[in-house]
């Protein structure tokens, strides 16, 4: 698969963490750079606070950076914000990001006859149907991203708390098939969020492995691992607990089958533990990958 290049300096299956501001001092002071192989930055942060770019450049002298976004809305049928795409692309180049990943979802909706500038921002990842009409949207929008960003572009399977992708034992495989079609339409690599998959399976009654059976392994470049929590009858992708044990099991499956896997990232967004706790999870991921 030659259409999504990854940075050649990323060693096979590097392991790192998602950078959060609270960890910055500890990371800059960390003497043993081998404790991490790679860092993932939230590229949208650069648009809100330009100081981030200086911090990230400092970090990039210690570790390679990959970039993750939350505000693109690759599935928005009302189109992308050209100015946003241009700014994100400038930021990606400025920090030498080896790839750019986003969520397979839509984020904005317009009223009948309204222009894109008047779209309602849902502020959270909303599921797509992923039929031919949606795939045409993905293809169109991904092409717009590529005109600004020549590096690799990955799409992540997002958490779908609505269960709109289907329920029951066959829902996993059906979701996996739609995910594969979406990657093809966007000509994108895959960022597999294994925790999203585990929680989706619990909420919607399918085995996560059935989703993976439909994934085009040659496109899998990155994995996200996190921990969710139970809220009432549902599991929520809260990123506020250690990595779910079932996600660790899936990582061993992915490690065996995804020959182009380049990075595994531990994510934490809330109830942040000391950096050492995340570094222990980095070590565990390395151990799983080395089996």
């Amino acid at each position: 698969m030659s259409s999504f290049r990854t940075g050649s300096a990323v060693s096979r299956a590097s392991v790192g963490i998602g950078l959060r501001e609270q960890y910055l001092p500890a990371l800059l002071a960390l003497r043993d750079v081998r404790a991490l192989d790679v860092l993932e930055v939230m590229i949208d942060d650069a648009l809100f606070d330009p100081r981030r770019m200086d911090e990230w450049r400092a970090l990039s002298r210690k570790w390679p950076l990959v970039a993750h976004g939350v505000a693109l809305g690759i599935g928005d049928a009302c189109g992308l914000d050209a100015g946003y795409v241009a700014k994100i692309s400038d930021s990606l180049r400025a920090i030498g990001a080896w790839w750019y990943s986003e969520h397979l979802c839509f984020l904005r909706a317009t009223a009948q006859g309204a222009a894109r500038k008047d779209a309602v921002d849902l502020g959270h990842f909303a599921p797509m149907v992923l039929d031919d009409d949606d795939l045409a949207v993905l293809s169109h929008n991904a092409a717009q991203v590529r005109r600004c960003w020549a590096g690799a572009f990955l799409l992540e399977n997002p958490a779908d708390i609505l269960g709109a992708q289907g329920r029951g034992p066959t829902a996993g495989r059906e979701s996996g098939v739609r995910f594969a079609r979406a990657l093809e339409a966007a000509n994108a690599g895959a960022l597999l969020d294994l925790t999203n998959l585990v929680l989706q399976g619990r909420n919607d009654g399918f085995e996560p492995g059935s989703f993976l059976e439909a994934v085009p392994w040659e496109r899998v470049v990155e994995v996200h691992l996190a921990g969710g929590r139970r809220a009432g009858a549902l599991w929520v992708d809260s990123h506020d607990h250690p990595v779910d044990e079932e996600a660790w099991t899936l990582l061993s499956v992915v490690a065996r089958r995804a020959e182009n896997l380049r990075a595994v990232i531990i994510e934490r967004d809330d109830r942040l533990p000391p950096l050492d706790a995340l570094l222990a999870e980095v070590d565990r991921a390395r151990e799983v990958l080395s089996r």
Partner: peptide
């Protein structure tokens, strides 16, 4: 893409 636009409007409003 018209179908997608309409579906997203409905889900978004919901």
């Amino acid at each position: 893409m018209t179908e997608s636009l309409a579906r997203q409007r409905v889900l978004g409003r919901m």
